[in-house]
Nucleic acid binder design. Structure first.
Lengths: 160, 160
DNA sequence: CTTTGCGTTTGAGCGCACTCAAAGGCGTAC
DNA sequence: GTACGCCTTTGAGTGCGCTCAAACGCAAAG
């Protein structure tokens, strides 16, 4: 516990418990999915990285261009993705999938680069983002309810 | 039960139960939110409709332009939103919030307009959409796990 | 030596979902 | 009557997140 905490430990635990109780299906094992496979080669070509992340080579270059990841080059000047780069890309992909804009991710990563002094701000950003994800989850649950309603009602006379 | 069903009743019920068991927090009361308030005026101006739906007047005109909703006019030629129009807009908004594209919504609504013969296709569309929502939910839960990991790890040495 | 294949760069192009600008029509208030 | 406010239309503009084109480099295979 240190000065970088925006919430006291009990508050933070409570916040986490709060959403846990709202989300029983969040499997703790999910965290395993955040790790890269152990047998990942040390260096990957852009094509390999693309296949692994399900992004296109275009998109990988784009992410590098806008500063979301830095990638080394091999003797031939070709991009060479190491574990760190891959981990970064996976992280970015998660945030993108949860609707965080490139700009916001960029901002977050700049804070990371500026060192530990920025941790409070990073924490705040993440908490705000978590709240936004929860809003999205609720929206989706509503949408799912609508969808199911449309589905169950067929054979009936629902309009539209 | 009729020929328009793509799944037999038991299959359909099972499909619904399946996702229900994955989503305990889906409150059945949510469906109430799909209904319009009883005290909704019969006719609303575009400004009132915008406020009610949290869309802008611009967006409402846009939705009409691309055929997502049809809206009558009053004596002065101004748009006049009735309950049906409002219900349609709410429905469209839910689908948008769950990531369905304007084009896909448009397609669905065209099917509706073509009459009951298209119900099987509509059902299929909705089921596909439900699957996509569930994928999104899982993505979001993952993202939430990442986010929480980032949050709980502060004070520690996590990178990035 | 040329072809094939995978990579590089810069800069432009695209699709989506809005979002706005311009020019003007009505109806009430002063 | 004229000013104000809210509305109308058409068509163009914007921001995001890619996505692609063009021209070129390098290196192994035939």
């Amino acid at each position: 516990m240190n000065a970088t905490d925006l919430l006291t430990a009990p508050d933070r635990r409570q916040a986490i418990l709060d959403h846990r109780s709202e989300l029983p299906p969040v499997d703790p094992d999910l965290l395993h999915l955040l790790e890269l496979p152990d047998d990942l080669p040390e260096q990957l070509s852009i094509a390999e990285a693309a296949e692994l992340t399900a992004l296109t080579a275009h998109t990988l270059r784009y992410y590098e261009r806008v500063g979301l990841v830095s990638v080394g080059r091999d003797a031939a000047g070709h991009r060479s993705y190491d574990r760190q780069a891959m981990a970064r890309i996976v992280f970015v992909t998660r945030l993108r999938a949860s609707g965080m804009s490139i700009g916001a991710i960029s901002h977050y990563l700049q804070l990371v680069q500026q060192g530990p002094d920025t941790e409070p701000e990073r924490l705040a950003l993440m908490q705000e983002h978590r709240a936004s994800i929860q809003r999205q989850l609720r929206e989706l649950q509503l949408a799912l309810a609508v969808t199911d309603y449309k589905i169950t009602v067929y054979g009936g006379t629902a309009a539209p």
